[in-house]
Simulated assay, not measured.
Amino acid sequence: MCRINPKVDFAFKKLFGSEENKDLLIALLNAILANEDQIVELELKNPYNLADYQAGKMSILDIKASDQTGRWFNIEMQVGEDLNFDKRSIYYWAKLVTEQLSEGMMFKELKKTFCINILDFNFITDVDAFHNCYKIINIGTGKDDKLHDVFELHYLELRKFNKPYHEIATALDRWILFLSRAHELDKSHLPPELAHDKTIVKAIEAVDRMFNEAERQVYETRMQVLLDMESKIISAWDKGIKEGMEQGIEAGRKREQLKIAQSLLEILDLETIALKTGLSVEEIAKLK
């Protein structure tokens, strides 16, 4: 069984954001992207580095990369439920677009930018498909008309994936199964649907030997932080609903947003707390 949960963002970052595993990231992205967008080579823009994390420089454990044609990619694994994740994703897409342009460059030099969001919670309501892709289209024609083609956003909702092993047919099926059920997988007894895929086998082997002692401590701490954060958010939300019914839903929600923000000050930066709670950075800064 895999001893490390690849859905924990710290583990996901090392697994797919390390130089020695770039082939795994390429395989994952090619399973997600359309045939015409397949990747041959990637350059990691923020590769995994334990020292950066320990120094507090990796509070958001996304992966940034560019391919052989200059296109940019932002890949993020999100475990904790975030009802504002759509806005967060657009924000990170916009940041990645602006990072492309150095002083003196022309707008025509902007390359297509993909945001790949892998979510361990259900986010898109009234849609059963676990993989959904968004582009800018002409609502009259339903087509992109080859305009505004620098935008593409993907959501992969792990909890909507419920295929049994005998229905696993595509590379994306195999990657989502790996991320969803790593705890069930034994590299010595893999189901045939996975055993023939060399990149999946490598990913399982990499997870099994992933961390040294220092990294394992960081991983376990990160897991505890995520669990604590989820517990605080759930508790605060439940309390907010109860108080909201008694004193007014809007006022109760605002108080609980502030309480959640207060509880997260010691573990997250102001920008991330703002994204999590819906408060402004200025409101959160006052809590200090």
Rank of each mutant, 00 (worst) to 15 (best):
M1T: 07
R3E: 09
K7T: 08
D9F: 14
D9Q: 10
K22A: 08
I26Q: 02
L28N: 01
L29R: 03
N30A: 05
A31M: 06
E43Q: 14
K45A: 12
Y53R: 11
M58T: 15
I60N: 12
D62C: 06
D67H: 03
G70R: 08
W72T: 04
I75T: 08
M77G: 03
Q78D: 08
Q78V: 13
A94K: 07
K95N: 10
L101R: 04
E103M: 08
K111I: 02
D120P: 07
F123C: 09
F123H: 15
D128N: 10
H131G: 04
I136D: 00
T141K: 09
K143A: 10
H148V: 14
D149C: 08
K160F: 12
K160M: 13
F161G: 07
I168D: 05
A169G: 03
I176A: 05
L177F: 10
L179W: 03
K198R: 15
I200T: 09
E205A: 10
V207A: 12
E215K: 06
R222D: 10
I234P: 02
A236F: 15
K239G: 14
I241A: 13
K242G: 04
E250C: 04
G252T: 03
R253Y: 12
Q262A: 15
L265D: 08
L275V: 02
K276H: 08
G278R: 01
L279D: 01
I284R: 02
L287H: 02
L287W: 01
